[in-house]
C-alpha cells in the first residue's frame, strides 16, 4: 500500500473518533430476575447474591444484585440483528475499512469496570462512542488498525454504573487466513470410533441405522456379544441376529473423571448392562446425575447421534 492510499483511509477513519454509536438509550427491560436466572443457570453460577432473596436480605448488601458481567446484556439490540444491524457510526466505520480491503475482523480485548452494583428493578442506559483508533499496525493476522469503543452505563438516577472498552482489529487478511492454514487443527474432536472388520462391521452399520443387534447362532440359537465368527457352544459358523429392545439392568458402573478425552461429554458414566435378552453390554448412562446410577438400576437404551460422526446406544433410567 502506498503512502497515498494510507493517507486516504486514515483521513476517513480518524474522522470517526469521538462519534456517537449509540446515543444514551435506556434498556427495553428493567433488570429482572427472569433474565438473571437464565444467565446464571447457563453460566453455572450459583452465587446467591444474584437470586437467593432470603440469603441476600441478610447479607451485607441487603438485597439481590444483577451479575456485573450482565451490564452490557440489558441494552443488547435483540434478535433483529440476525437480519442486519442498524446503520450507525460503527457500521459506517466498518464499511470504510471493508471498502479499503480491511475486511478481517477480530475482537481482541474487552474490559468492563463496575462503579456500583445494580438491582432488579433498576434500568441501565447505554451510551457508546468510538473512543480511539490506533495507528497502522502489522499483526500476526495481517496489517490493520485497532479501534476501540467506549460504552458508558448509567442507572435511572443518572448514576454511573460502569464502562466497557471493546477493542477490535480490522485488518487485510493474509493470503492464507489462519483458519485455512490450520485446517487440520480445525476438526472438532469426536468420539474414538471402533475399527470395523469382517466380524463387527455389520453390527456397527446396524448401529448407524439406529439398531442394536445381538448375534445369534443359527444352529443352537445361543446369543453372543460381542460378535465373533464361531459359536462357542456348538462351533457353528452360521449366525443371524435379533434386535435388542434395549431394556436392561446395570451390573456395574464407573464415572470417568480423569483424564478427560476431547470429543467426550462429561460427566461421563460407563456401565455394564445386562440386556433383557440375556447378553451383557457396555454403554453410557445418561439422563440422570452420576450419583444416581447404581447396580440393579433398570435402564432403557436409545440410539442417539452423540456427535457429528457417531451413533451410539445411550441408556437412560427406565
Amino acid at each position: 500500500m502506498t503512502t497515498d492510499e494510507q493517507k486516504a483511509i486514515e483521513s476517513e477513519i480518524y474522522a470517526f473518533i469521538g462519534q456517537e454509536v449509540y446515543p444514551p438509550t435506556p434498556a427495553a427491560d428493567d433488570i429482572n430476575e427472569a433474565m438473571i436466572r437464565q444467565w446464571a443457570e447457563i453460566m453455572g453460577d450459583n452465587n446467591p447474591a444474584y437470586l437467593d432473596k432470603d440469603w441476600a436480605a441478610k447479607s451485607i448488601r441487603g438485597t439481590t444484585i444483577s451479575p456485573p458481567a450482565m451490564m452490557y446484556v440489558w441494552g443488547q439490540e435483540g434478535f433483529q440483528v440476525t437480519k442486519g444491524r442498524a446503520l450507525n457510526a460503527m457500521s459506517n466505520l466498518v464499511s470504510v475499512f471493508d471498502k479499503h480491503g480491511y475486511t478481517g475482523v477480530l475482537g481482541t480485548n474487552v474490559k468492563q469496570e463496575y462503579f456500583k452494583e445494580v438491582n432488579p428493578g433498576d434500568n441501565v442506559t447505554i451510551e457508546m462512542i468510538i473512543d480511539n483508533i490506533s495507528e497502522r499496525k502489522t499483526t500476526g493476522r495481517g496489517t490493520g488498525y485497532f479501534f476501540e469503543t467506549l460504552s458508558t452505563f448509567t442507572d435511572q438516577r443518572g448514576e454511573k454504573v460502569g464502562t466497557q472498552r471493546f477493542k477490535v482489529l480490522k485488518f487485510i487478511p493474509q493470503e492464507q487466513p489462519s483458519a485455512v492454514a490450520t485446517e487440520d487443527k480445525l476438526d472438532v474432536p469426536t468420539r474414538i470410533a471402533s475399527p470395523r472388520g469382517h466380524d463387527n462391521k455389520w453390527w456397527w452399520e446396524a448401529c448407524d441405522d439406529g439398531k442394536v443387534l445381538i448375534q445369534r447362532c443359527k444352529s443352537c440359537q445361543t446369543l453372543r456379544h460381542p460378535p465373533r465368527p464361531m459359536c462357542g457352544e456348538c462351533q457353528s459358523m452360521e449366525w443371524d441376529s435379533i434386535e435388542s429392545t434395549l431394556d436392561g439392568e446395570i451390573l456395574s458402573h464407573t464415572e470417568i473423571h480423569h483424564p478427560k478425552i476431547p470429543g467426550y461429554q462429561y460427566p461421563l458414566v460407563c456401565a455394564v448392562i445386562k440386556l433383557a435378552e440375556g447378553t451383557n453390554f457396555v454403554a453410557n448412562i445418561i439422563g440422570c446425575s452420576p450419583s444416581e446410577v447404581h447396580i440393579g438400576m433398570k435402564v432403557k437404551g436409545v440410539l442417539e447421534q452423540v456427535d457429528e460422526k457417531t451413533m451410539l446406544p445411550q441408556f437412560y433410567p427406565a
Partner: peptide
C-alpha cells in the same frame, strides 16, 4: 464467595 464485589474484568481474547 458472594460478599465479594467485582470491580473489573479485563480480558484478552
Amino acid at each position: 464467595g458472594p460478599d465479594a464485589v467485582v470491580k473489573s474484568v479485563d480480558l484478552r481474547l
